[in-house]
Amino acid sequence: MDVFMKGLSKAKEGVVAAAEKTKQGVAEAAGKTKEGVLYVGSKTKEGVVHGVATVAEKTKEQVTNVGGAVVTGVTAVAQKTVEGAGSIAAATGFVKKDQLGKNEEGAPQEGILEDMPVDPDNEAYEMPSEEGYQDYEPEA
């Protein structure tokens, strides 16, 4: 019985440690998101679009440190934060509304985080759909 109880105690310690790591990862992701939003706020009209992409990228980098179902929630929060940063930029006159959601080359930025393969159960990952990809044929 002692062996059984000791095993359960060790398992509990492992769960607590994993929860603490997840909590730490979420806190880091939130900190990076805040950094990115402050970065966007300090940019001029020309830099705002690039700044919004930076927020998304920093958040995406930190999301990889967070495991399990938390990833889905962090990704949703990050996307809403990026959308909010863009709205703030438009409201303050840093950028025109028609410039939001495009990178410096004018290509749409939507789907940055949505296409990231995420499995809350950590069982399997699927690649994003290939609808947006084109076949590449090298020139002879």
Results as ranks from 00 to 15, higher is better:
V16G: 05
K6R: 05
A76K: 13
F4C: 03
T81F: 01
P128F: 12
V118C: 11
G67E: 02
A91C: 05
V95T: 08
P138D: 11
S129M: 10
E20R: 03
E61S: 10
K80R: 10
E61M: 04
K102W: 14
G67P: 05
N65V: 15
K32D: 00
K21E: 02
T22F: 03
P138T: 08
G25M: 15
Y125M: 02
G84Y: 06
L100I: 12
V118P: 05
E28G: 07
M127C: 03
A17T: 01
A27H: 09
G51R: 06
V37A: 10
D98I: 14
A107D: 12
Q62R: 08
V95D: 10
E137K: 03
E61I: 09
V118K: 14
K96G: 02
V48C: 08
V71S: 04
S9Y: 03
Y39H: 06
Q99T: 10
E61K: 09
H50S: 09
G51L: 08
E131I: 13
A107N: 11
V82H: 07
A69P: 05
Y125L: 12
D119K: 11
L100P: 01
T81A: 11
V82L: 11
Y125A: 06
E137D: 07
T72M: 14
A29H: 05
I88T: 06
M5T: 02
V37S: 01
D119A: 03
S87K: 06
N122M: 05
V52G: 02
V15Q: 00
T72I: 15
V55M: 14
V77S: 02
A53W: 04
K60T: 05
Y136I: 02
S87H: 09
M5L: 02
E137W: 05
A17C: 09
A11P: 00
E110T: 09
Q109I: 11
A30V: 06
K60W: 04
K12E: 00
K58S: 09
L8Q: 00
S129H: 12
G25Y: 14
E105Y: 12
K58R: 00
P120W: 12
V3I: 06
P128R: 12
E114S: 12
D2Y: 12
N65S: 01
E130A: 11
H50W: 15
L38A: 09
G132Y: 14
V95P: 07
V37F: 07
V82E: 05
E110H: 04
E28C: 03
G36V: 11
V70E: 08
E83F: 12
G93N: 12
G47Y: 11
N103E: 06
E35W: 13
E139K: 08
E35P: 03
Q99K: 08
A140D: 15
Q134K: 15
V52M: 01
D115W: 13
P120G: 06
E105I: 11
P108M: 08
L38Q: 04
Q79P: 02
E137V: 12
V37D: 00
L113V: 03
K60N: 05
G51P: 02
E28S: 06
V74C: 12
A89Q: 03
V74L: 12
A27C: 03
K12D: 00
L100A: 07
I88D: 06
T75M: 12
A78W: 10
A19D: 00
V66Y: 12
A29D: 00
I88R: 02
V15K: 00
K96Q: 13
E28T: 09
